[in-house]
């Protein structure tokens, strides 16, 4: 009998990376088995992107020099680029979150509670979808296209782009985990699925179309506004200096609080009786 084995911080990081690598590997194995699904999901996301692009292009096509709440055609393209990156990340790594309501209801989270690794990592990241790589390619291409239509790439854009991308992906994780936490409070309510849909719908347009308080709520509390709106504002130079620093700090703190909330909510999991 070996007794408790204490793992160093470095060991923990190594273990988490090994788990992610295994999720990535089994994702590839799974998709190698379901090849048509691979293709279908790529096309599905292309449909999602196309519908968004066409909708905005049609709206801007209705009149010359149209802007939507101060966002011109080029700025909206940058906005959509970030939206697609966030979506590609969600489809690649976080799609298991969609199944959380039924997993709670059917008692499928028993193994997650038993595993010696963070529940957020083991649950949300377990379904790696390699087609996301193709989606990422499309999303980045469109983001690049959007940025070039804004004018020549400046040093400011290149400097702020990694930070904007980090915020976009961080927010995607925070939103998925936060809405998952709600699901434990209202079992079988489909609340998280409903809010994901609502959040996606609300964040699918530049947030300046909403009143100030709604906008602040969507950025600072939910924070679906950080999926595309805030990153686009950062690279377009509309958010900088102390405001940018405050935004990044707040989003990281909010994210950590949401992760803690999820871990706490997970304790409400009652499993299934059988």
């Amino acid at each position: 009998m070996s007794g408790a084995r204490h793992i160093s911080l470095l060991g923990k990081c190594r273990q988490r990376l090994a788990i992610l690598r295994q999720f990535l590997r089994v994702g590839l194995v799974r998709k190698a088995q379901f090849r048509i699904d691979f293709l279908a999901q790529v096309v599905m996301d292309l449909c999602f992107y196309s519908v968004h692009i066409i909708t905005f292009e049609l709206l801007f096509g209705m009149g010359d020099g149209f802007t939507i709440a101060g966002w011109d055609r080029a700025a909206v393209r940058v906005f959509l680029g970030f939206l697609f990156v966030a979506d590609a990340f969600m489809m690649t790594w976080l799609s298991q979150g969609w199944f959380l309501p039924q997993d709670i209801k059917n008692g499928n989270l028993d193994p997650v509670r038993l595993r010696p690794a963070p529940s957020i990592l083991v649950y949300f990241f377990q379904r790696f979808s390699p087609e996301g790589a193709v989606n990422f390619l499309c999303a980045f291409s469109y983001l690049g296209y959007g940025l070039t239509t804004c004018g020549p790439l400046s040093a400011d854009i290149i400097w702020t782009l990694p930070l904007a991308l980090f915020l976009c992906i961080w927010a995607e994780v925070v939103v998925a985990v936060g809405l998952g936490a709600l699901e434990f409070l209202f079992v079988n309510s489909d609340l998280s699925r409903f809010f994901i849909e609502m959040a996606q719908t609300a964040s699918g347009k530049p947030l300046d179309i909403y009143k100030r308080r709604v906008r602040q709520f969507l950025i600072l509390v939910l924070p679906v506004g950080v999926l595309a709106h805030v990153p686009a504002e950062i690279v377009l130079g509309r958010c900088h200096g102390l405001e940018l620093l405050g935004q990044v700090t707040w989003q990281i703190l909010l994210g950590l609080a949401v992760f803690a909330l999820f871990r706490r909510s997970f304790k409400r999991y009652e499993s299934a009786l059988s």
């Binding site: 709206l59 079988n188 309510s189 409903f194 849909e197 609502m198 719908t201 609300a202 347009k205 179309i209």
Partner: peptide, 21 residues
Amino acid sequence: VGFVVRELLNGVAHPAVMICL
């Protein structure tokens, strides 16, 4: 809660956002 979310609120978010747009 599921009834309210699924049956009552279902489908209202998108038109509301489009009105703002």
